[in-house]
Simulated assay, not measured.
Amino acid sequence: MKVTFKNQIKSIGELREVMGFPREMVQKKSINFIDEHCKDFIAKSPMLFISTANENGSCDVSPRGDPAGFVGVLDEQYLVLPERPGNKRCDSLVNILSNPHIGLIFIIPGLKETLRVNGKAILSRDKDLLNKYEVNGKCPEVGIIVEVEECFIHCAKAFLRSKLWQAETWPEKEQLPKVAKVLADHINSSNFSKDEIQTVLEESYKKRLY
């Protein structure tokens, strides 16, 4: 059954009537290159989120993490993200091949502000470039090269509201979702029990990070 929603906003003008306009400081904070401040932020970030979309506009967001500074700054215009082993779905990579537009959010633990970077991406197998990102004797097979078009600091309100960095607000371990159980129910196959999935996950996390 199709669900309908009342009082939808259908134009930018209507949206602005409700939300207003950004202040001058917000309008002017975006730059189109990687300056020393952005470079320092990226060097201190062990975690980012990548937003991509396919040729039809269907979106995907994917996390990437490694020791702080794992994203390389080649110059004022280009970044390189080493692609580590995953589950081989390659959602972000497949999207980039049909639609180069990409958005990144860099996170630094304990810092409530984030760095947002938007641009266009390509995939590279340049070994001379990727060998610089070797970990545990293993080099990435693919790198995401991002041509930066926009960089800006995103304010802290989301982190303040969520209290993400305040450990006392975190749920107890027993209250966390049981991921193996979630996967077993989603897969819904007699070939994959919760315990079997848990074993596969633990082995992957121990042996196939790089």
Rank of each mutant, 00 (worst) to 15 (best):
V71M: 05
L97G: 02
D75L: 12
L74D: 11
L79Q: 09
N99K: 03
N87C: 11
V71G: 01
N99F: 00
L93K: 04
P85F: 09
G65L: 06
R84T: 11
G69P: 06
L104C: 08
V80D: 04
L74Y: 11
P82C: 10
P100L: 02
Q77C: 13
L97F: 01
N99Q: 13
S98E: 08
D91E: 13
K112I: 05
F70L: 07
D75G: 11
S92K: 01
S62I: 08
I108E: 04
K88I: 11
D75F: 13
P63C: 10
N95C: 04
G65Q: 09
P85Y: 07
K88A: 14
S62C: 10
V61C: 15
D91Y: 04
I105L: 12
E76A: 15
G69F: 07
I96P: 00
V94D: 01
G110N: 07
N87I: 10
P85I: 12
E83V: 15
P109V: 11
D66R: 05
L104K: 03
S92A: 14
N87R: 08
G110T: 08
L79W: 10
D91K: 04
P85K: 14
P100Q: 07
R64V: 02
N95P: 04
Y78S: 13
G72E: 13
I107Y: 09
I102L: 06
K112N: 15
V71P: 01
I107N: 01
R89V: 11
P85H: 08
L93M: 14
I102D: 00
G110H: 06
C90A: 13
P109G: 12
F106S: 02
S92I: 06
E83P: 00
I105N: 04
A68C: 09
P109E: 12
P63D: 11
G110Q: 08
C90W: 12
L93T: 02
L111D: 09
F70H: 03
G103V: 06
K88Y: 12
G72W: 01
V80K: 03
Y78I: 11
L79C: 13
Y78P: 00
K88W: 11
P63Q: 13
R89G: 07
R64F: 02
N99G: 00
P85S: 10
D75N: 15
V71A: 02
V73I: 14
Q77I: 12
G103H: 07
L111F: 09
L93S: 01
E83W: 03
V61H: 03
I96H: 00
L79E: 09
V94Y: 05
